[in-house]
């Protein structure tokens, strides 16, 4: 997996912005099979920053119905990447 396959997209929500500003933590959607090690490597290489720690969350796909038929959205993985003290927070993902 190359870095761009590991990291699928930045997550830009109220919570993510809050954590970025208050807890120097970035938030991404990542590949479901990506490990913390892989994520750490990808983020630190892509943004040129040092990483203190990573927490990941497996999000289970939501139920979606279309009339009588129903199914599930794909499961996905979210990663909170905490930067080391004093690292400059990269600017990205502005809508």
């Amino acid at each position: 997996m190359n870095y761009y396959e590991v990291i699928r997209r930045p997550i830009y929500t109220e919570k993510a912005v809050g954590m970025k500003e208050d807890a120097r933590t970035l938030c991404f959607e990542v590949h479901v099979d990506a490990t913390k090690t892989q994520i750490a490597e990808a983020v630190s290489k892509l943004f040129g920053i040092k990483i203190e720690g990573i927490r990941t969350v497996n999000q289970v796909g939501k139920l979606r119905r279309r009339g009588r038929s129903s199914g599930y959205k794909a499961d996905w993985k979210k990663a909170y990447v905490k930067l080391k003290e004093g690292e400059t927070i990269p600017e990205f993902a502005e809508v």
Partner: peptide, 18 residues
Amino acid sequence: TMPGFRAGKVPLSVIRKR
């Protein structure tokens, strides 16, 4: 109103940029 944020709760830093 922005997706990912509650109405009226978008942080000022985001507003300034957006």
